[in-house]
Nucleic acid binder design. Structure first.
Lengths: 140, 140
DNA sequence: ATAAAGCCTCCCGCGACTGGAAGGTCAAGG
DNA sequence: CCTTGACCTTCCAGTCGCGGGAGGCTTTAT
């Protein structure tokens, strides 16, 4: 299979597949003409990567997952650990976004949204942070 | 005020402040020695930027918000529009992350997580996407 | 006088690709 | 046989929002 074929079958752009080879996630063979020659196993790995990435796993997660995928004697606990760590990160992000959602909703509700210049949103944005000696910027 | 002073007062790293100058969000004066000389108005803008960024507004949003901030005759409706668009994006992201959360939770629940190699998580990841002619990769 | 801190510019790097240029290869049609 | 066009190759640059660090000023404190 050439790269175009696996691209169509896996749903990944050719560019991405070349990138994955570059960083060592797949290692297709080479034909005499220099073209990449993908085996079925390569296709499966790429499909695996596409799915894992779409679930938000980082490249490093994917690297670890692929190793486990290749190792038929792996313990499912190892996979579960990676997945749970990822889930924790997702939940963290969810909490942050929920907080943002709430803050913004409050501000938007407080704003008349008419032709007058008076605006609680800008007023909030303009508040200078109370100086914090422990240098933790952007945290409020 | 030198950059260190505004950094402390605004909570933004000096590097970030220099970057904001580079992309035209602030325009401090210069002293004879070449040091940036920040006015109070610059400090307020930077604090504004820090707060807006911490609320997840994009740099381009910030640029627009700053313009409105400078314009004392602005209509609050314009600000509200930007904020609402941002809120929409946040809600979208929230929905995506929630979907990811649900999928991952299902997979994790289905996985025994013991020493055996059998793993539903890997099994799911390994499924090759059903070929889709409309080239929309990564969407499932 | 000297050391330390603060400031300057410039360049490289990150993550995970994406786009484009310049060129080799292959199958089909005239 | 030649051309066209699709496909493949490598390499380089850019993305976003900074952070790290080098190398070299100026200012401040001892």
């Amino acid at each position: 299979m050439n790269i175009g074929d696996v691209s169509r079958l896996s749903g990944l752009p050719s560019k991405t597949i070349r990138y994955y080879e570059e960083i060592g996630l797949v290692a297709p063979l080479r034909s005499d003409n220099g073209y990449r020659a993908f085996r079925d196993s390569d296709l499966h790995k790429l499909a695996f990567l596409g799915r894992a990435r779409s679930l938000g796993f980082s490249i490093e997660d994917c690297r670890n997952l692929l190793t486990l995928y290749d190792d038929t004697t792996r313990a499912s606990a190892d996979v579960k650990t990676i997945a749970r760590q990822h889930l924790t990160r997702i939940d963290q992000k969810l909490a942050e976004l929920t907080a943002l959602h709430d803050t913004l909703t409050h501000l938007i509700d407080a704003c008349a949204g008419d032709h007058r210049p008076d605006c609680p949103i800008l007023a909030d944005l303009a508040t200078v942070p109370d100086t914090k000696p422990g240098h933790s910027p952007l945290v409020r």
